[in-house]
Every structure is written in C-alpha cells, then in structure tokens.
C-alpha cells in the first residue's frame, strides 16, 4: 500500500516541516518514506510545496502528481491542486484562506481544518502547520499515540523541550478536530 501526500501553501507556513513530520511518522510505522520539497525561488517566499510518500514496498517516483491526500494551506494551492487529488482522496484545507464556494469536485472528501484560527486561539502561534498535521494523521492507518510522540522526537529533539511540547499540543489539537 502506498499513500501519496501533497502539502502546499505559503513559504514560511512550515510546509516542509509538516512534510518532514509526516515522513517521520512513516518511519515510526516502519514504512518506506520519501520527502521531496520544492526548492525553487519559492523557498524565499511565495508558494511552497512538499510531496511525502509512505509505502510498504520500495518507492519508485518520489513525485506526488496524484495525491491521495492534499493539504492546502492557502487558496492558490487549493486552486492549483484540487484537480490533481485522486478520486476518492481527501482534501484538507484551512477555511481561513479558502472561500466556501471554492469546491468543484464531488468525488473527493473535503475536510476543513481551521488551523490558523486555532493556532491563535490556543496560543500556538506559527504552529498551524502542526495542527494541520494532527488532522491529517487521521487519514493514516495505525497511527497511535506512541507513534505520534516517537515521530515528534525525531523531528523536534526533546532537548528543545518548549518547542517539543507546543508541537505535541498542536498535533493533539488537530487530531481532535
């Protein structure tokens, strides 16, 4: 089984970090993983995207052209990649950036995650990405509390205790949506 995930948004929203955490989740689940960022001028602002694949067998192409799961963290990403989502797939998006009437498909699941708003309400400034990560984890099988924590330890070392706790709280918040 192979799960292909595309994460897209503004540079600075922590798109690549979100992807890295999902790849760490895959490793904690003992699956094959790949993580491929966009590395163009968008690294210095503008749009950023990142493809993550979790698989049971060796991964061929690391490019995510038809994602099973899309996380759109802004409206341009929603518009650009909504059409690419595999029929039957899931589109997670932040309703703060995407208007109600933006949806155009009937063969995918739309899952609004008010990550930006929640990050403000819960004093998790800058962690909307990890709230989104928490929400996404519900689409992945076998993700347990242990896996969530083990992957976080790989992504944010525990010696950065403060950031570790905040990230864990953000993921838990997203998971609860």
């Amino acid at each position: 089984m192979e799960t292909r995930i595309l994460i897209a948004g503004f540079g600075g929203q922590g798109i690549l970090f979100l992807g890295k955490y999902l790849a760490a989740i895959g490793m904690a689940l003992d699956r094959q993983v790949s993580w491929l960022p966009s590395y163009g001028p968008e690294m210095r602002g503008g749009t950023a995207q990142c493809g993550v694949i979790l698989a049971d067998t060796a991964i061929g192409s690391p490019l995510v052209e038809e994602p099973d799961i899309l996380a759109a963290m802004n409206n341009p990403s929603f518009a650009a990649f909504e059409g690419a989502v595999k029929p039957g797939g899931s589109l997670y998006y932040d309703p703060a950036f995407v208007p109600e009437d933006a949806r155009t498909r009937s063969d995918i699941a739309y899952l609004p995650v008010p990550a930006a708003q929640a990050s403000e309400d819960e004093s998790l400034k800058g962690l909307a990405n990890m709230i989104m990560a928490g929400a996404l984890l519900k689409s992945l099988p076998e993700v347990t509390a242990d896996v969530i924590e083990a992957a976080m330890k790989k992504t944010v070392p525990e010696r950065k205790k403060e950031m570790f706790d905040a990230n864990m709280r953000a993921v838990a918040l997203g998971y609860a949506f």
């Binding site: 993983v33 993580w35 690391p62």
Partner: peptide, 10 residues
C-alpha cells in the same frame, strides 16, 4: 540531480 539531491529518505 536536483531531485535526488533535495529529497529525503530513510
């Protein structure tokens, strides 16, 4: 190439 240089794998 740029893909293999930029991508991460275990």
């Amino acid at each position: 190439d740029g893909i293999l240089g930029q991508m991460m794998e275990a």
